[in-house]
């Protein structure tokens, strides 16, 4: 049968161009877009809310005094505005927390991802994540009434009743689940073929974990640590309860110390009238915390781009 015959017999093909509006689709899209914009708007709103009082603060307080003086007492008379003690307080508690959480969290992640049987993983991982659900106020009292007294009994050094060490340790415990759980997710996502390849070359389990899986999961692990650091730097309740409120300029973790977050809580729960310098100080410190956290995120993103191993 020739082509001409076919065209005579066959019905004309139906046009494709019958467009039909799918209303459900556009509603879903609008809802999703709203959700995305809402989180952006929240961030912008926070920045905007911080900005105005922060500018107001710096019209009264010299930027040089703020960043160079080691005397912090914005609520005292006469007030002093050297932010260094609260920055060091934050750094010390955060560094202690990270020193606890990164090794333990990574070890837990390596164990769960590379050593544990499926059955053990099914029990341990949710248990670990429960730790993340403990109210920080409870952890704060755990630090104050258990960790600190034990340390004071056993340590050869002088330890204050309120101190950065105890607070840092317990903040570290608090963020272990973040490091462990997210790192384990990243390591579990490493293709099994890479593990098999490494085992087939005569690697031990430890070698596979440390030289193949961990590097391949690097970007996920760094993301987990960043989140943990941000969480530690911003942690308030534990520090308020266990580290005290005295803004000593010190590098000794056994001393009492004030962090940025705990200052904000302390001042914010006081009665500084709106528009006063004391009130604006809260926002200035908040801005600084925001900027520091942002810088850390940015720096880590660069680090990840540089060192990550892309599989697939």
């Amino acid at each position: 049968m020739g082509m001409a015959d076919v065209s005579e017999i066959a019905p004309a093909p139906q046009a494709l161009g019958r467009s039909r509006r799918r209303h459900g689709e556009s509603v879903v899209k609008a809802v999703l877009l709203t959700a995305a914009l809402l989180s952006v708007a929240t961030t912008v709103g926070i920045v905007a809310a911080l900005l105005e009082p922060t500018v107001g603060f710096f019209t009264h307080v010299g930027i040089v005094e703020f960043f160079t003086s080691t005397d912090w007492g914005p609520l005292f008379k006469p007030p002093s505005f050297g932010v260094i003690p609260v920055v060091t307080g934050t750094l010390i508690t955060t560094v202690i927390a990270i020193a606890v959480a990164v090794p333990l969290g990574l070890a837990a992640a390596v164990y769960l991802s590379e050593y544990a049987s499926a059955r053990i993983r099914r029990v341990i991982k949710p248990t670990l994540e429960v730790l993340a659900g403990i109210p920080t106020v409870a952890l704060g009292f755990f630090a104050l009434t258990l960790v600190t007294p034990v340390m004071r009994d056993w340590s050869p050094f002088e330890i204050s009743l309120k101190n950065g060490l105890s607070a840092g340790l317990v903040v570290g415990v608090m963020i272990i689940p973040i490091v462990a759980s997210l790192s384990e997710d990243a390591m579990a996502a490493v293709p099994n073929g890479l593990r098999e390849g490494a085992y087939a070359l005569g690697s031990s389990r430890m070698t596979v974990a440390l030289r193949v899986v961990l590097p391949a999961a690097f970007s996920g692990v760094v993301a987990a640590i960043i989140l943990a650091v941000s969480r530690a730097a911003g942690e308030t309740m534990i520090v308020v309860i266990a580290a005290g409120s005295n803004p000593l300029f010190t590098v000794n973790p056994a001393d009492e110390m004030l962090t940025m977050a705990s200052f904000i809580a302390q001042a914010g729960s006081g009665d500084a009238p709106v528009g006063t310098v004391a009130y604006n100080t809260i926002f200035a410190v908040g801005s600084l915390l925001f900027v520091l956290t942002f810088l850390m995120n940015w720096f880590s993103a660069r680090l990840v781009r540089r060192y990550r191993e892309v599989y697939e």
């Binding site: 073929g193 890479l194 390849g197």
Partner: peptide, 20 residues
């Protein structure tokens, strides 16, 4: 078994070079 795998190498179905 690690010594066994060192002496007896293996190549897999899907190429699996390390991301290095």
């Amino acid at each position: 078994p690690i010594e066994v795998r060192r002496r007896i190498g293996m190549v897999f179905q899907k190429p699996n070079p390390f991301p290095k």
